[in-house]
Design a protein around this nucleic acid. Sequence first.
RNA 1: GCCCCCCUGGCGGAAUUGGUAGACGCGCGGGAUUCAAAAUCCCGUUCCUUAGGGAGUGCCGGUUCGAUUCCGGCGGGGGGCACCA
Length: 802
Amino acid sequence: MKTSIMASERYSPADVEQKWQSRWDEAKLFEAKSEPDPDAPTYYVLEMFPYPSGRIHMGHVRNYAMGDVIARYKRAKGFEVLHPMGWDAFGMPAENAAMQNKTHPKGWTYDNIAAMRAQLKSLGLSLDWSREFATCDVDYYAQQQALFLDFLEAGLVTRKNAKVNWDPVDMTVLANEQVIDGKGWRSGAEVEQRELTQWFFKISDYSEELLDALDGLDEWPARVKLMQANWIGKSRGLQMTFELTEPYGELTGLEIYTTRPDTLAGASFMAVAPEHPLAVALAADNPALAQFVVDVRKSGTSAEELETAEKQGFETGIHVKHPLYESETLPVYVANFVLMDYGTGAIFACPAHDQRDLDFARKYGLPVIDTFFAMDDHTPVENEAFVPPKTETVDWVNQPAGIEKATGEEAIEATIDWAEKKGLGEAKTQFRLRDWGVSRQRYWGCPIPVVHCEKCGVVPEKKENLPVQLPDDVTFDIPGNPLDRHPTWRDCTCPSCGGPAKRETDTMDTFVDSSWYFARFADPTAETPTNVKAVNRWLPVDQYIGGIEHAILHLLYSRFFARAMQKTGHLAVAEPFKGLFTQGMVVHETYKAADGSWVMPSELTISGEGANRRAVLKSDGSPVEIGGIEKMSKSKRNTVDPDEIIATYGADTARWFVLSDSPPDRDVIWTDAGVQGAHRFVQRLWRLVHRVAEGADREGQDNGSLALRKITHKTLSNVDTMIPALRNNAAVAQIYTLVNALEKGVDDNSVSSAAMREGITITLQMIAPMMPHLAEECWVALGCEGMVGDTPWPDFDPDLLA
RNA sequence: GCCCCCCUGGCGGAAUUGGUAGACGCGCGGGAUUCAAAAUCCCGUUCCUUAGGGAGUGCCGGUUCGAUUCCGGCGGGGGGCACCA
């Protein structure tokens, strides 16, 4: 059957794209085989799975288009490819929607998934939909509960008290970023600091390993590794005890931690955290101190508040001996700027060399000792502390270890040695990384599978009793966790003594759900968390792609989880993601109407250019201010709906545009002109293919054939290195150059039909990962065999590269 | 405050290891086609210029036969962490 299409006819994506999506489906082209050829190399490409908010946005289009290029390319290269999709489906938005719209989180979530699945399918992604799951599927969270129990048994989970932000109206714990100006972001209620017993994963046991193993991740962006290293925050210092001048009860000394023992000679006072055992003990007998502790606690823990919070202290009347000068003593304060959960919760303060200590010293009239550097231009410390440089050599005076000329680092090491020899303290490595608190006082999450028994205490649920399933009959008409007030759900039998008991009503942080989903994709129906054989065949993920905003939490938690799963026998590898790529955002200009409201791009007309660009409302022609280029967001109304773009130009144009303009790790600016340019190329290629097809039997003069073949193979060689490096913008530019040459060859009839056909065929194979529908349709128009999506990647001829 | 990254035409950006700066696209200018438009095609497009050239990758300096690329300083923009002692 031959369809005759005139070269003047325009390519119509609407007619074509769905057809090819169905054909790929029918051929099960993208399903990873369950019994694969053991000799075939495997490749696991994964994009961070979406939260089912309701509709996809351009960021999704970019993310999934990038992954799809790799997946289709590797497939053509002969790899057995796993490219799955799922849904990060638990979380607060579903509950907020339930409260606002009187829906049920479950219905809301699954409706959203259905809508977004259809949208994703319209993009023509080479996804293995047979492996799809949502983290709120009972089958998934049941296995997550099994994992939790295994972790608990392996000593990777602990239960302890933690200070949290408590919203007394919504009756829930809030994350720091949900506290705005000391008030709950939803309720507006004054947030309280509460101490609650919470479940924690002991990620801090792995601080050293998570840090060291970063070195081995050579396919990760250096930036992400650095951010994780900073977050883990390893520091070396001295832990030492300052002797009290007279014992307080049992206590004879105050243990502190410092990373700058070299500044010991400048010590002027001591400070302990309000939660420090010494402070607590003193407060018991001292109402003024007790009141001080309460006052200090009232202030929030958010970043902004801490930044502006003034240093506050309470003089305890207790003193310690100065370790260097027998005759001197140092007063001990309780201070709001000392953190209980870092180091020992107590510090020695050296105001001359630490800004915080200086601020405190000036406020409370404490001495500032700045005489122990023989700096040439030594100026006395006033209101700015002098921080001794770590890597520059300076002259020291009165240095405890007797140092005279050394860098800060050398001085620190020498002082630690000195202190160890004198028996004052010992070298100690501290990490900033804290244990991961996973308890959430929420309904729409994975129930923590433990039981509270009056007789036995906290008891893990038995595995055979899993899953602990969320009840469907809950209401959201009053604040708080519906699980807490459910009439019967909490009632259960103690797995230990068989007596009556109550279920834990906290659910897990949704970051837990996303910390192992990549392993579940290897066999999403396994009756254990992972099918060990399958998971070890596919993992680690060869190429993981997602936003930089997950550089720390999600990626670090997943790295911890892989280790925990390794320890509990669910996984063989410690690092889940071999290659990582963090893509930039899709950004767009913003527009503001005269009344200050944001205006959507589709509501206005733009004319002129440069300084003369003007925007007016389509409705009434009133002027609109053109604002900055920002991340697409609903609040700024600068979004472009993928559905509309697909309806107007087709999925291929949208994909081509987000892949072409900007380097993949940078932001791409969405512009109408850019999309039209991308679409212009779609039509150009379509016309070119037909001109070649129609001229197939016409012999060219052939004097341009060799030159064209050289360009063809050079382009192929370049694209072949650019696609695996995700340098799609560069690959696109290469393809443009080739297409320009092909058009020229057709125009001046200077190329043999064989060389022309080779050029156009290779072009189609190169664009197939990016614009798969167009490539298939052109493939047919040229009369090529089978589907281009099922055709091996072409080899370039090295002889033609010179 | 600490840590890190970036800076190339009107715009997004190319330039494999230090070797022809500005590929490719967008925009813009001119032209062709058209009754006209859309669509399409062709030519031009870093700046200055006395038309022979000259300058040029944020600025100043250095290394080098040669620097967008390496080193030092300054300026501008962006990001991460943050009372972490």
